[in-house]
Write a protein that binds this DNA or RNA. Structure first.
Lengths: 210, 210
DNA sequence: GCACGATACTCTATGTTGGAGTATATCTAG
DNA sequence: CTAGATATACTCCAACATAGAGTATCGTGC
């Protein structure tokens, strides 16, 4: 019997609110968690079944015409499992950033290719913020489906929005720098990097003193 | 024949510099890419073999006493593959953040549990910046193994350092907020969230106007 | 000479992706 | 009214990936 994963609890969390079909569950996970817990649809279909074998959810089969669907709901054991999870150690946030890998091996790339690699950060930033603006307006204009969730949503929003801001800021400033490289000198390029290093160390020292 | 993945190219990138043993490769990947392309050691051992079957690397077996080791080097086909990769589309950065999932379902958690979930961001921020300070000093004091890499390292450093700054800023401000919740009101908590939403929308509007 | 850390791997269960494949139900435009 | 598009509701598979355990040998410091 495999233990439950964060993906299991992400589904269980939704089931703790009300019963859902897997399709709806996949939709909610996609809409709400995609930027910090992305999982493909087929994984959700697998995992709902797993939740049932673990006894933390139960599925009820019904039909609309000849097409069946399963509505899942949480069991008392599921609620207890969710509470136990909340008490457990948290994994550190995990980042995978192919564009940065290309920058790392940028000696084998052209400046144009570096520009494109960096661009992938901006694309994500735009996506996050486009979604964010919609959510923010829904809350502010009282059109949100769960207005009570505003305080929690605010925390998540704060993280994601500023994550996006960092992605964008970095992308723009890095693209600007790389654009100068074809006509720049090694010294100039190195000096820019040293500037970055110095700023960071100053920040760090200020923090350890303060 | 499975296509090469970013992990393949991450290894190939190292091999484009000089030949390495898998142990050294795993070490370099860990030291240099762990914050934006983390892969377990056993994966590297698997993948070096795969690179050989794909013809992009070759392995030379030798012995120190009775213990063997394999030194991998890149082939001409490997260099071409690396160049092709550089031209290809980039995946968007990917984030997995269990702590945020717990915050999302925070209705089922205690404030202390939320505090702990948020803390996981700070732990990573400290890790990134502790590693960053060492690297920055190495470059600034001329003790770096590859001083020529400074311009590229500067770009990567800039992203990671500020990613860490955002993690820390968010963690501290969110923990401060959550700490008030046991004695706060729903209105106050919602107002804080609305403040976050409004700031974001203003930022967004300023950007689209400017 | 021995303990311990570094080097050099292998193995396995399970999680996960991404894409293809297969239906049926419902909505929308003509 | 009907055809085509879109939404709903799944299944299947190869390959990537993790985490942790397991197994050796080599080199260094005491």
């Amino acid at each position: 019997m495999a233990a439950l994963t964060t993906t299991s609890y992400a589904i269980l969390g939704w089931l703790s609110v009300r019963p859902w079909t897997t399709y709806e569950l996949a939709q909610q996970l996609r809409r709400n968690l995609r930027f910090f817990w992305p999982r493909v649809e087929s994984r959700i279909y697998q995992e709902t079944k797993h939740l049932v074998t673990e006894g933390v959810a139960k599925g009820e089969r019904s039909y609309v015409g000849r097409r069946g669907h399963t509505i899942y709901s949480i069991t008392p054991k599921g609620r207890r499992a969710l509470a136990v999870w909340m008490r457990q150690q948290n994994d550190r946030p995990l980042l995978e950033f192919e564009g940065l890998v290309k920058v790392f091996f940028g000696a084998s790339a052209t400046p144009e290719q570096l520009l494109a690699a960096i661009q992938s950060a901006k694309v994500l930033a735009d996506e996050i913020q486009a979604a964010g603006v919609i959510v923010a307006r829904e809350y502010l204009e009282g059109r949100s489906a769960w207005p009570d969730r505003a305080p929690l949503s605010g925390l998540i929003f704060d993280f994601l929005w500023n994550h996006a801001e960092n992605l964008r800021r970095w992308a723009e400033s890095s693209q600007q720098e790389v654009a100068t490289w074809p006509t720049s000198s090694a010294d100039k390029k190195t000096e820019r990097a040293f500037q970055v290093f110095r700023t960071a160390i100053e920040q760090d020292e200020k923090r350890s003193r303060g």
